[in-house]
Design a protein around this nucleic acid. Sequence first.
DNA 1: GACGGTTGTCCATTACAAGAGACAACCGCA
DNA 2: TGCGGTTGTCTCTTGTAATGGACAACCGTC
Lengths: 264, 264
Amino acid sequence: MQERLATKAKPTPPAVTRERSLDRMSQVLDFLHAHRRPIGTAELARSIDAPRSTVYNLVKSLTDLGILEAAGEDGRIYFGHKLYLWGLDYMRENPLVRRGREAVDRLSQETGETAELCMLQSGRYTIVHMCPGLRPFRISSAVGLQIPLPWTASGRLLLSDLSRDEVDALIGEEDFVLPDGRAIARADFHAAIAEARQAGHCITSGLVDVFTKCIAAPIFDVDGKVAATLCFVVSMETAPERVAELVDVLVARARALSSGPDAD
Amino acid sequence: MQERLATKAKPTPPAVTRERSLDRMSQVLDFLHAHRRPIGTAELARSIDAPRSTVYNLVKSLTDLGILEAAGEDGRIYFGHKLYLWGLDYMRENPLVRRGREAVDRLSQETGETAELCMLQSGRYTIVHMCPGLRPFRISSAVGLQIPLPWTASGRLLLSDLSRDEVDALIGEEDFVLPDGRAIARADFHAAIAEARQAGHCITSGLVDVFTKCIAAPIFDVDGKVAATLCFVVSMETAPERVAELVDVLVARARALSSGPDAD
DNA sequence: GACGGTTGTCCATTACAAGAGACAACCGCA
DNA sequence: TGCGGTTGTCTCTTGTAATGGACAACCGTC
């Protein structure tokens, strides 16, 4: 009886925590997403700080299900084809993504520029879709990449609904450091966000890459919040009139996609 | 006591089987993939023949993880954005898919035609990647679609390693009926497969769509089997010389992608 | 307003999986 | 050949989640 009560009344739960398999799976897949290449099972277990036996069992199960696949050598594993199929289903059924992709393809065709659809997913900036332009640009296979918000024009628009504190909470100090080592001042970034909101579009130059300019326009959801952005990645050399023209096209197309209940 | 013994000595395990959460999840996602649109939780439970309480809990967990998402009205659920991210990772890391995508983008840029990368996945024809051409074609957002193999030029190539019986086993009668109601004779289809294998490429006219021609070329894996195809979707009006030119480009590019251990 | 039909929530039970740890088979390297 | 470092498999224990089933809140329809 006493043990019963004692057991029941335990004020502090024991330190040993047992994760659910679904959570472990999510940890594994999230880690793989960040890791961005195949990994061995033992190293994976170390990386996500999970018991080895658990991870070995889990990897076996997930491999059997086609969620993971052997990739590379040494029995390394990575994402499986099932995830690809399911991901495509998401893309096809999600109205914003589906219509946004079509818009990107069409914009790229019409202008010959590289166009992208960008969204905030899990608090991170994501390139959802890209269609390369005509110009002999380096084709970055960056689709699905999650890169720091301050690096992009779209990032400034996507954050324009948040308060200053929310933005600060969302973005770590390291995200303000550009690929070439330069750092963006927080104050400047907040100002740029406000400016982007005012202007209804945003242009950045030479952030991710010295040779490119980003032009972005917001797509609004039914609540008037920025749900996604359309964006052009153009050469730094692009003439100002051409840039202005692209801005107009982009803003118009983004507005057409905004809060459209006329989807199918 | 008797029940105890009976319970303990059970020679045949009871009919009640308890599925693992991972298996249940896989059932749910596979069902959604086949269902191809959002579904309510209760109906989902009925559909996969799982206990209601199990499915309610599972859907809650998966939704929290971003693997499922509320979609449509009535609390229906569908695939979540995490699957999209993970699927893109699969696509980016898989050497064949990655290099095939780049080739498609480049082919489309160079020729101005709509180009596609197609594969056989889980025994079904899948458009893995598409880049729309310059011409004002109807943009089909067909990426990830799994359509009947007989409808396409790529399908004929992808099946060219299989025996007649294997092909027959893989393709149901309904797949031979084209969108406009016409039916393809099995014998003709088998002949077309053989011809495609011989020729090293395949051209079909007006199958999926009266106004289009499909031109496909095979990408071979290390074993010399057809692993994927590159394909152009062009207007029916395209001049024969132009078609011949596109065939040459396509075959050359596909060969360059074949069994390349020189991947990155 | 009593009814069969839903959908969604919440328990109690217990079968099963998450985790700890031992183990063998490999590496190098000294 | 022994010795730390691996990786991968296997056992056993025990916590926990999958399940059955009760329940409330809704429908409609008779």
